[in-house]
């Protein structure tokens, strides 16, 4: 009985409550009870804020603190929480879409052509060896502080993940399945359309989840390094003002966005790959 759903849920809630309580009051209690040297600095609200402060910051940034002025706040401040979240999501979406589409296209072309694969192989390996984050300042230099540079950063990160998955997928197509299709009357093009692409798509779909989360990471890093708006920008601004609670608000919003995207992608994947015995998303 100890691992029934209810028991697990109760434990989870208890742990959450414990974390919140220690976070909220732990620093005062330990200061009152322990010698100064033993007071854990990690609990200092100056660094980690505390749940009540985070909630207040959330209400303020989310334009909830002033009931009358919600719409004024939304339109008035250029980096309120909602606008920042929407901007980050929008850039994630476009970066993901371009990265995914170009990764699939390049993977299919190089996967089907031994010649091109051998010509471009070393370049791909070389480019892939550059830590993508190192390129972000360059991207911002080229595309400016606006949204375009964030989309480009996300594209850079997503492209290679999807490219390698598609390339491998195209290479891994079962030769006997191709022979079977030919013997059933398929032309070269029909084989590509009805065997090679569907078979490679399994690998492509498996790369959906890493592609989406990489896109989000790319955009946030881009916003850290230079941006006008977005969740990453919110964090950097809060850091400049040493405002831990605002930073925490942005981090929690990212967490929720991440969870929602993962759930959405997983349900899409399990629909698209419902014919597979088991699929393992590869990062």
């Amino acid at each position: 009985m100890s691992n029934s759903r209810t028991v697990i849920l109760l434990w989870q809630l208890a742990i959450l409550a414990a974390i919140l309580v220690i976070w909220q009051w732990g620093f005062e209690w330990s200061r009152a009870l322990l010698p100064k040297a033993y007071v854990p600095k990690i609990l200092d609200p100056y660094f980690v804020a505390r749940p009540s402060l985070i909630w207040q910051s959330f209400l303020r940034l989310g334009c909830f603190s002033d009931a009358a002025g919600f719409s004024a706040c939304i339109t008035g401040s250029d980096n309120n929480l909602w606008l920042a979240t929407l901007v980050t999501l929008k850039n994630t979406w476009w970066g993901f879409l371009f990265g995914w589409a170009s990764g699939i296209a390049a993977g299919l072309v190089l996967g089907r052509s031994d010649f091109l694969a051998r010509v471009f192989g070393p370049y791909i390996v070389a480019l892939n060896s550059i830590p993508r984050i190192a390129l972000v300042p360059l991207v911002i230099l080229i595309f400016g502080l606006g949204d375009l540079s964030k989309i480009a950063t996300a594209w850079l990160v997503v492209f290679f993940v999807v490219f390698f998955n598609t390339f491998e997928g195209t290479r891994a197509v079962d030769r006997d399945q191709i022979a079977a299709a030919r013997l059933l009357g398929a032309s070269e093009f029909t084989v590509l359309r009805t065997v090679v692409i569907p078979s490679a798509l399994a690998w492509v779909f498996a790369s959906l989840l890493p592609a989406v989360s990489f896109a989000l990471i790319g955009v946030i890093v881009g916003e850290f390094i230079g941006a006008e708006r977005g969740l990453g920008k919110l964090i950097i601004e809060a850091e400049a003002r040493a405002n831990a609670s605002e930073m925490m608000v942005a981090i929690f919003v990212m967490m929720f966005v991440g969870i929602l995207l993962a759930i959405a992608v997983r349900s899409l994947q399990s629909y698209l790959l419902r014919w597979q015995p088991q699929f393992e998303p590869s990062a």
Binding site: D176, A179, A180, A181, T194, A202, Q276
Partner: peptide
């Protein structure tokens, strides 16, 4: 074929 060559999708 001897081997399973059905299209799994």
């Amino acid at each position: 074929f001897q081997r399973d060559t059905l299209f799994p999708w």
